[in-house]
């Protein structure tokens, strides 16, 4: 297997991992399990409601920066970075 295809496999694995988290915080915590999570409270927020209107968005931001930094590492590992 060439470097480029190993790089691509690792990238796909990373993307799938990130998208699982993306799915859990929005579709999981914010929609499918919102009623169960709403029985837990943090401050004045019901947890499911918090995920739907706040928490999922914070997680999205963190996910993109996590992905970007891991990809930079990956680019260098396979020496596929620009310039």
């Amino acid at each position: 297997m060439s470097d480029a295809s190993r790089y691509w496999t690792e990238n796909i694995r990373l993307v799938i991992g990130c998208l699982i988290v993306w799915f859990i915080v929005s579709y999981g915590a914010g929609i499918l399990f919102v009623h169960q999570l709403n029985t837990i409270r943090i401050g004045g927020y019901q947890l499911g409601f918090w995920f739907a209107q706040q928490g999922s968005i914070y997680t999205f931001v963190a996910l993109i920066f996590f992905y970007a930094s891991r990809m930079n590492t990956l680019d260098h590992k396979y020496n596929l970075q620009e310039d």
Binding site: V15, L19, W22, S26, A52, I57, L63, I64, A68
Partner: peptide, 18 residues
């Protein structure tokens, strides 16, 4: 209305990775 909050932000995760 959470559909708009999650829908209009979660798309950026797809945009950044895909």
């Amino acid at each position: 209305a959470s559909v708009f909050l999650m829908g209009w932000t979660g798309g950026y995760v797809l945009l950044a990775m895909l």
